[in-house]
Design a protein around this nucleic acid. Structure first.
Lengths: 131, 131
DNA sequence: GTACATGCAAACGCTTTGCTGGGCG
DNA sequence: CGCCCAGCAAAGCGTTTGCATGTAC
């Protein structure tokens, strides 16, 4: 399953471009609305199918938040902070923590680790100021 | 929102008992089928509503896996291993990792950490043997 | 011409909601 | 009597699928 196997259709290119420029973790609807600016006739099913396709190919990453799929194109191992108030989700990169988690995971019996990620739950700046 | 505010109806008690005895991370359907053994007339909506209620009260924990809710009554901070082949999910307790993650999180700017959890993705023993 | 993508609509599965009746203070 | 909870069915919402058409090699 090499990268060269991938057919880069217009729809897929626009989806990838949109994800690259989007600041955050868009839902399927976000992607759909965004891509529709350029490809006015694209259907939501195509967005769904291609988001799944691209994440299976390892070009993007799917993150599930409370039962809803979100996507990101940042493929560097990293973590996420989630605001318990407003639901905002942000990247947080800590190489140390990635390595520490992988080291610990390597010691788990009967389990071959492939990846690890950590989610931080708390209150974001905006919501702190609101209170 | 004290624990004493909670009305322990028969349905809630049975759901809590079921979760305590269940070895794993049951879905809503698992809970429904389990509890129905004793309360034959319970409805799935009651199971949904009470699982949400109990997790809001902090008596159980909800974990979302691929868009589906699962529940656990183990409230001690811990992590999860997930098998990429069969989807099996297991608890993994590492106090060191919990503390390390919290320590790192405390340093994130503009974010007041409350909790952190780590998911390990890989291949479980059963699936390794299958190959 | 074959294989695979698209667009559209319908179907699907998990979850929530509205309503009515019941239980307990 | 008032309040909350249970049961039931229907609605809601995110997602997947079937099918006919289109497009690239």
């Amino acid at each position: 399953m090499k990268k060269t196997d991938i057919k880069y259709t217009n729809q897929r290119i626009e989806i990838l471009d949109f994800l690259k420029e989007f600041d955050g973790h868009p839902t399927v609807d976000d992607v759909f609305e965004g891509v529709r600016q350029k490809l006015t006739r694209i259907s939501k099913a195509t967005v769904y199918n291609n988001l799944r396709f691209l994440s299976e190919k390892g070009l993007i990453k799917e993150v599930n938040v409370k039962g809803v799929s979100r996507f990101e194109s940042n493929m560097i191992p990293h973590h996420h902070t989630m605001c318990l108030e407003c639901g905002e989700m942000k990247d947080y990169e800590s190489e140390e923590l990635c390595e520490y988690a992988m080291k610990i995971a390597a010691e788990i019996d009967d389990f071959k680790i492939e990846s690890a990620d950590t989610n931080f739950y708390g209150i974001c700046k905006k919501c702190m100021e609101k209170e």
